[in-house]
């Protein structure tokens, strides 16, 4: 049910798309090598691998101490799978959140319900479409989906991060899905809190190199 991002060291060097790294072409590296006088005893492939790994170490150093546990919001009221959509909507608005984790009775994280999921239940793709339909009165919002169970509408499996996840795993997880929030859960699936994309971005801005 729960997918934690994995770390496999050097293997990842070939897939650096998790961070905003620029992919260096051989031509870029060769051009740079021409600018340094003398024979450089390194292949472009080795240089690229070194660059990616060093970049990652630099990020780890700059964002030391930035963990999912520190950034997450705890004390949020999660949804239950059998809960009616109408009650779920009340929890969204009551907590001012646009995504809420869904937790089974045994307190295991089983999914996430987002505003997008709710809108889909009402047959629209975004809020503006909903407003437009109301304004033109082309369709009156039906109440039918309100009785549907959260379990039917939620997104699962859910992308989550462990509480000790640092900058790179969090970024990798956010890059894997477009959601605004990501549950923080233990490896056994117990929900600890909710990490909001905006909280993460704020922390990066404050603690980051720029």
């Amino acid at each position: 049910m729960i997918q934690h991002p994995t770390e496999t060291g050097f293997e990842r060097a070939a897939h650096p798309d998790e961070t905003a790294e620029i992919e260096l072409s051989d031509a870029d590296i060769l051009e740079a090598m021409r600018e340094i006088p003398g024979y450089l005893d390194i292949t472009t492939g080795d240089f690229r691998a070194l660059y990616h790994l060093a970049y990652r170490h630099a990020l780890d150093r700059l964002f030391q101490g930035l963990t999912a546990r520190r950034l997450m919001r705890d004390g949020i009221i999660a949804l239950r799978p059998e809960m009616r959509l109408a009650d779920a909507i009340a929890l969204f608005t009551g907590q001012g959140l646009k995504a809420l984790p869904v937790v089974a009775p045994d307190s295991r994280l089983v999914g996430i319900l987002t505003v997008t999921d709710v809108l889909r239940a009402f047959g629209v793709s975004d809020v503006l479409e909903l407003i437009e339909q109301q304004l033109t009165a082309s369709r009156v919002l039906g109440a039918a989906p309100c009785d549907q169970a959260v379990a039917r509408l939620m997104t699962t499996p859910v992308v989550s991060v462990p509480p000790d996840a640092g900058f790179r795993p969090i970024l990798a997880a956010f890059n894997r899905h477009p959601g605004r929030a990501m549950p923080v859960a233990t490896v056994t699936g117990e929900l600890l809190g909710l990490l909001l994309r905006k909280d993460f971005m704020t922390a990066c801005h404050l603690e980051g190199p720029g």
Binding site: D26, P37, Y39, I42, T43, G45
Partner: peptide
């Protein structure tokens, strides 16, 4: 092989 090309030729001064 993986790299597209070998290191460039050095300058004449070199």
């Amino acid at each position: 092989g993986t790299a597209q090309s070998a290191p460039p030729r050095v300058s004449h001064a070199e």
